[in-house]
């Protein structure tokens, strides 16, 4: 397929990118291109210009900073999956990144492009919601920080405004006694998430001291499964306790919001979501060292 015509500008700094976005109405940000280029090829979008931020130094890579792990927006899924820092400090994120698409896609696709696109079937939003991520967004008037609950606003929409750029995402560093995991029901064709469940649990004195569970895939924007979390805290993380808690997931899903398609209906996704929540919790619990 062949994209419609557009202009192209390569930014060498975040400030330049912001300025270019303002100069060119109806332009779009290009990072790795793995969300945007398919849309252009199918002629589902026709931006006037692409602002390529792919070569901007300083918004790539993973570093630890003041008790948080900071991930530059241009960091690829492959880098996230392979990062020792994330594997130990935010296991669910590296695990989820390793399940996106396929190896070639993971080599090019970026975390920033992925979350800014906010596809409901994407893997990362649920994980970032689960792990309490914060998002740094830059515009011509400076930089602001938004937490995950506010970042994902709905279907394909985020807190990033028209002339802004997502520059980095930060997570609290994991600590001992804590574990996280991501479990995914993959669509057999697209490999996107039909259901994605991210879980993070902490164990102290043999019982669950904290739990965070978030779901993606079946909802327009990731949601926390607070009913599941509440059912776990204070309990020993036995198989039975996990299964019982996972079954509370329905309480956190709004039936009117659950997505369905020709492959898997909303009713079905709601009914079986607990299976993946249970798997994520089981894996997370096993990682509590």
């Amino acid at each position: 397929m062949f994209a419609p015509q557009f202009d192209y500008y390569r930014a060498s700094s975040v400030a330049e990118a912001a300025a270019l976005l303002e100069q060119h109405p109806d332009s779009k940000v290009l990072a790795g291109g793995h969300s945007l280029i398919p849309v252009l090829k199918l002629r589902l979008a026709a931006p006037s210009a692409l602002i390529d931020i792919g070569r901007i130094d300083g918004i790539r890579g993973i570093r630890e900073e003041a008790g948080r792990i900071v991930i530059g927006a241009l960091t690829t899924h492959a880098e996230i999956a392979a990062s020792a820092t994330l594997q130990s400090g935010a296991t669910a994120l590296s695990e989820a990144a390793g399940m996106i698409g396929d190896p070639a896609v993971r080599n090019r696709g970026t975390i920033g492009g992925n979350v800014a696109h906010a596809d409901p079937a994407s893997d990362l939003p649920a994980v970032l919601r689960c792990l309490g991520a914060e998002f740094s967004i830059a515009g011509s008037s400076g930089t602001r920080t938004v937490d995950a609950a506010d970042f994902f606003e709905g279907l394909m929409t985020t807190a990033v405004e028209e002339h802004e750029i997502l520059t980095s995402i930060s997570l609290p560093s994991g600590s001992g006694g804590q574990g996280s995991a991501y479990a995914k029901f993959s669509h057999p064709a697209s490999r996107y998430a039909v259901i994605g469940a991210a879980a993070s649990v902490a164990v102290a004195d043999g019982v669950c001291s904290a739990a965070s569970v978030a779901l993606g895939g079946l909802v327009p924007a990731p949601v926390r499964a607070e009913a599941v979390e509440d059912a776990l805290v204070g309990k020993a993380l036995s198989a039975g306790a996990i299964a019982d808690a996972a079954r509370c997931v329905g309480d956190s899903l709004d039936d009117d919001e659950v997505l369905g398609d020709v492959y898997a209906s909303a009713e079905y996704r709601s009914a079986v979501a607990h299976v993946w929540v249970g798997r994520a919790l089981t894996a997370a619990a096993a990682r509590c060292g």
């Binding site: 199918l42 669509h187 064709a189 697209s190 996107y192 020709v262 492959y263």
Partner: peptide, 8 residues
């Protein structure tokens, strides 16, 4: 099921 994203 009009694309390879849909047809498994």
């Amino acid at each position: 099921t009009g694309t390879m994203l849909d047809y498994a």
